[in-house]
Simulated scan of single mutants.
Amino acid sequence: MAACNGDTTASSPTPTPTAQAAAADGRPFAVEEVARFAEPWAMTFLPDGRLLVTEKAGTLKLYDPERDTRGDIGGVPEVAYGGQGGFGDVVLHPRFADNGTVYVSYAEAGDGGAGAAVARATLTLDGSGGGALENVEVIWRQVPKVSGQGHYGHRIAFDRDGMLWITSGERQKFDPAQDMQANLGKIIRLNDDGSVPADNPFADRGGVAAQIWSLGHRNPLGIVFDDDGRLWAPEMGPKGGDELNLVEKGVNYGYPIVSDGEHYDGRPIPDHSTNPDYRTPVISWTPVISPAGFIIYDGGQFPEWQGNGFIGGLSSQSLVRIAFDGDSAREAERFDMGTRIREVEQGPDGAIWLLEDGSRGGEGRLMRLTPPGAGATDAGADA
C-alpha cells in the first residue's frame, strides 16, 4: 500500500537499461535515458521541440533534447517548497504560437499556511538557451490556505474551447472537499484570464463556489480530455481506492464521505456503492497505483495505442495503459518501470516521454519510450 498518496516514500533512481536491453525485456518499447533533473515534477514541449521542465524546489529549465543543452528560465514565482509542495505544472496557452503565454502552478505561502496557485506569464527566450517569465500574473489560488504540505493537486489543462481547468487537492483536510465555501478538493473551470465562466454549474453562488466544476475529490494529479471532449482525471485514494473518474458538470465524487479505500488509522470509509448520491469511479485500484501524470496518446510511433491513456504510477513504479470505450475504461496493461513515474507526455515525434520522480531532492531521469528497434540512442545519458 502506498503511504498517504504515494508522494511520501522516497526511492533511489535505478539504472535505465539501454534501448536494446529494454526492448528485449518483454516490454513493447525501448527505454532511453535522455537527461536528469533535480526533483522534476512536470514538462511540456514547445513548438520547436524543446522542453520546459519544472523542478520542485522552484526552477524552470529549458532543455533541448537534440543538442542536449539546458538553460534557466528566470522570473519563476517564489514557491513554498517542502513535503509535496513546490513548483508544479507548466502548460502552454492553446494560442502560444501567437501570444507566448504559459501557465504555471506552484505551492504558495501566505496567511494560514500554504495553498496552490496558478499564474500566467509571457515566455521570452534569449539566444543563449535560456529566458524569462515576464508579466507574471496570479489568476487563481486555493482558498483557504491551510497548514500542512500535502495534496495540492494543481494540474492544469485546456479544453478545445480554450477553457482553463485546474485540479485542486483537499490538502489532507478531508472535509473541504465537500465545502462549497472552499475550492479545495475540487476540479476548477475558468476562462483563460482566471475569470469565471457564466455557465459553470455553481456560478450563481458567487465566490469560490462559482469556480467549481465538480467536487468530492481527494488529490487529482492528472487531467486530460479525450478526442470527444470527455474529461478524465485520476486521483489518489486514501489507503486503497485510487480512482479514474469521468469528470462531469456539477457532479459530486464523494470524498471523504465515500471512498473505495479506508483511512490510514484503519477507520473504514463507506464504499461508493453504499450511496447513490455520489459518483462511482470508472476504475478503482486497491492496491493503489498512486497515479500521477496522465496523457491520452494520439501519436504515430505506437499506432496500436492511439486513443489509449497512460498514467504514471508512483508507489506502483509503473506505467499504466488505459483502454477507453465511450464513457467506460479499464486497465489494459501495466508496465513495470522499476521506479516512480511522476510525469507522462507525448513528444512531437510521437514518442512517450516520462519523468522519474526525484523524491526528497533527488535526481529524476527524463526517459523516452520508442518502439523496439526504432533507432533510440543513449545520447544525453550522462546529462
Score class of each variant (00 low, 15 high):
17 P>L: 05
319 L>P: 00
282 V>W: 07
329 A>D: 11
247 V>G: 06
69 T>N: 04
202 F>T: 04
101 T>G: 00
368 R>Y: 11
111 D>H: 07
322 I>Q: 04
13 P>V: 11
320 V>H: 01
355 L>E: 07
83 G>T: 10
227 D>P: 00
56 K>D: 09
98 D>G: 10
59 T>Q: 12
356 E>T: 06
230 R>F: 13
43 M>E: 14
276 P>R: 07
154 H>C: 11
204 D>Y: 12
140 W>A: 00
151 H>E: 03
268 P>S: 10
341 I>D: 09
286 T>K: 07
238 P>C: 14
289 I>S: 01
367 M>T: 14
116 A>K: 04
29 F>I: 04
280 T>G: 00
38 A>T: 14
271 D>N: 08
95 R>Y: 02
105 S>R: 08
231 L>Q: 08
3 A>E: 15
90 V>Y: 04
89 D>V: 04
46 L>P: 15
267 R>F: 03
141 R>E: 12
144 P>V: 03
353 W>Q: 02
110 G>V: 06
120 R>M: 13
286 T>V: 11
137 E>C: 04
357 D>L: 11
222 G>C: 12
286 T>A: 00
220 P>A: 15
80 A>Q: 10
383 A>Y: 12
1 M>A: 14
348 P>Q: 02
314 L>N: 08
309 G>I: 15
266 G>R: 03
80 A>C: 08
210 A>Y: 05
377 T>V: 07
267 R>A: 10
191 N>I: 01
69 T>A: 03
248 E>R: 15
202 F>A: 05
286 T>Y: 09
168 S>I: 01
186 K>L: 01
132 A>I: 06
339 T>A: 07
189 R>D: 06
152 Y>H: 12
39 E>Y: 00
248 E>D: 11
14 T>D: 02
349 D>C: 04
86 G>N: 11
187 I>Y: 01
289 I>G: 05
292 A>V: 12
359 S>I: 03
259 S>K: 01
21 A>M: 15
144 P>L: 03
